[in-house]
Measured scan of single mutants.
Amino acid sequence: MLDDRARMEAAKKEKVEQILAEFQLQEEDLKKVMRRMQKEMDRGLRLETHEEASVKMLPTYVRSTPEGSEVGDFLSLDLGGTNFRVMLVKVGEGEEGQWSVKTKHQMYSIPEDAMTGTAEMLFDYISECISDFLDKHQMKHKKLPLGFTFSFPVRHEDIDKGILLNWTKGFKASGAEGNNVVGLLRDAIKRRGDFEMDVVAMVNDTVATMISCYYEDHQCEVGMIVGTGCNACYMEEMQNVELVEGDEGRMCVNTEWGAFGDSGELDEFLLEYDRLVDESSANPGQQLYEKLIGGKYMGELVRLVLLRLVDENLLFHGEASEQLRTRGAFETRFVSQVESDTGDRKQIYNILSTLGLRPSTTDCDIVRRACESVSTRAAHMCSAGLAGVINRMRESRSEDVMRITVGVDGSVYKLHPSFKERFHASVRRLTPSCEITFIESEEGSGRGAALVSAVACKKACMLGQ
């Protein structure tokens, strides 16, 4: 009897593995994704193909990295998701002549009506938060230079001027797309009239992360975010950046690689679950690469896999709870928690219980395998993109072996128990001629924006502006 049951459990697990095998990517698959990513990057950089390229390769006008001589107080704003952060950054000489960066910050959550109302409502709310922060720190009387981390696709015309191309991540505030974001912020500050600010720089969160990590390690020339969304930036040779005049030196390019796949480059790798996630998203047909990796989508992918296993009578005796059938019910943090389970399955059992399920031991094991399959594919897909960037940098610099540091931020990278190990191992397999160091950014977005502002202020002083 026991043997029969054991055989049935083994057969069930084997069927589960057959279904989950769809998520496995072979090294040849990853090399294919990497080569296609490089081709799209090239198209994004070139003037004649930029418009139709899915990977936009947006110039950021960040050319210099901090040298350690900029000092002063800077205000930093960070808008990239449902939370908005205001930070005071003091850049100065530390002990023994070292450079020191001290920060104080406060988080504000953005109400739904500000995210989806008008641009005026959104930026009025942001300036209200700045006003509140300055009151708390008794700094209303000071006109501070301000660095703005704005983590949406922007076409820069200068370091302090950028046109919002399109909202992502659930934002829909009308009247912002096609307009200068810094102008919208300046107008809102003017409307309030109770404080003055000098907006000197606007950067993407990947750029802010790279600059913040450069402060720790001067070989950091790539910034990457794996959180709600997924994106990367890197220092490109100016001669390859056709959208900006000049051939000397390097400029940081914001790849906006989340949109890779929007022209069909990933079609052969998309599964039924991916198509369902895409169809029910706020932007169907867009940001397809990001939807395979980002935390906004990972939990939902797992939920759809679990429903398939229920329908195949391989999980929960073929019956799903009402909660499990509800879109968004299986949160991405559950994926991390399930994979963090120590082996007694308590954590998995508790999560499934909150979803109205009474799982068996085998159910718990199957749910864990589903989570591992989805998150491992995410790590491997992400590795193909980064390997594409790094191999490109090595080739354009004609280096036999390139040493490089990548600064990384984002909740999936930082909080998932195995993502970074799987990701690092896969990147290294795909970049055999590179020695890569990964560092995690601390308060990256805010500190990085302030350091970019410090560079901009120093330049302005040198130019006598």
Rank of each mutant, 00 (worst) to 15 (best):
D3W: 07
A6M: 10
K13C: 15
I19W: 08
L25R: 04
Q26H: 12
L30E: 09
K31L: 07
M34H: 05
R36Y: 03
Q38I: 05
R43L: 15
T49V: 06
H50A: 08
S54F: 06
M57L: 04
T60C: 09
R63C: 00
E67L: 10
G68H: 05
S76Y: 06
L79I: 05
N83R: 08
V89K: 01
K90L: 04
G92D: 07
E93R: 07
K102N: 11
K104A: 06
H105I: 05
P111R: 08
M115L: 11
T116F: 12
G117I: 02
M121V: 11
M121E: 13
D124H: 07
D124S: 05
D124F: 04
C129L: 05
H141A: 05
K143T: 01
H156Q: 05
L165M: 09
N179S: 13
N179Q: 14
K190G: 13
G193R: 08
F195P: 14
V203K: 00
T206E: 02
M210R: 00
S212N: 07
Y214A: 04
E216K: 15
I225H: 05
G229R: 12
G229C: 14
A232V: 08
A232H: 04
C233I: 00
N240Y: 01
E245M: 03
W257Q: 05
S263W: 02
E268K: 04
F269R: 03
D274F: 08
D278R: 05
K296G: 13
K296A: 11
K296F: 15
L309P: 00
D311K: 13
N313V: 09
L315D: 00
S321Q: 11
E322W: 11
T326S: 10
R333F: 04
Q337V: 12
R345S: 09
T362E: 13
T362F: 07
V367G: 01
R368K: 03
R369V: 05
S373W: 03
S375D: 05
C382H: 09
G388D: 04
S396Y: 14
S396A: 07
G410C: 06
S411K: 13
V412A: 09
P417T: 14
F423V: 09
T431W: 04
P432F: 08
E440S: 13
S445E: 14
A449S: 13
L451C: 12
S453I: 13
V455R: 09
V455W: 09
